[in-house]
Amino acid sequence: MIEIRFHGRGGQGTVVASELLAQAAFLDGKIPQSFPFFGVERRGAPVTAFTRIDDRPIRVRTSITRPDVVVVLDPGLLRTTPVTEGLTSGGLLLVNTPRRAEELAAPPGVRRASVDATRIALAHGLGTAMLPIVNTAVLGALARATGVVTLEALARAVEQFVPARPSENRLAARDGYLGVRNADPGAAAPAPAPFAVPAPLDRPEGPVASVSSEVIHTAAWRTFTPVIHLDRCTKCNFCWKFCPDAAIELDADGYPRIRLEYCKGCGICAAECPPKTIEMVAEA
């Protein structure tokens, strides 16, 4: 049995990727299984999905904690999520990135592969520059790097099951297949978790969650950044009042300042600003 774990962000087609892979494996005559992690399923938020492939019926139904392959659809997650958790010697890390595979940090003995799926997706008009749909290009790369499904089966699964643009997606899968780059095993230390989870308290009646959520930065959710032109600001504080993330504070003179580490780029401040002094600018 091969266990594959996908990491992406809400809206990138991560769950669809895990399903397409399972469909392709089925067309190859294998017995697959796929399902997403039931968690914070929010637009822009980190998403995890799983695919298992075997020649026999699969009885296990749990999340994949010791994957053979980890697929990362968004390179930004390498900074915020411990994607290689449970990945051990002999495994494979495949990342959508313009960087070479040699530049990826992976645990000892883990093979590395990279593919510039964003460039491929945009070349085929899949998604937008802000939110490219990279799943089919990444699957093409996965097929080549692992041999876990054939390109023919993947192309058929894509044609049959993608929600939109089947022929462009099929071409993206082919380009991902051709464009994957491999590297020898890495030797990096396992990625540290973004913050330490304290040991459970020996006091079940005490508070169980007492760390402020401000230790979590949600800037990676953003595709547009608000920029305030303070010269035209009237200090009406509408932006402050309507921010659902409490990500705008007022300075001593009453001017707003955006706490960019928390702003998710919803655009409410720009839409509500009466003198229209806030501009939403595409993330670099």
Partner: peptide, 13 residues
Amino acid sequence: YSGHAACPGCGPA
């Protein structure tokens, strides 16, 4: 607090 897990533009938040 900021850093919560609501979607961008969340009314309940």
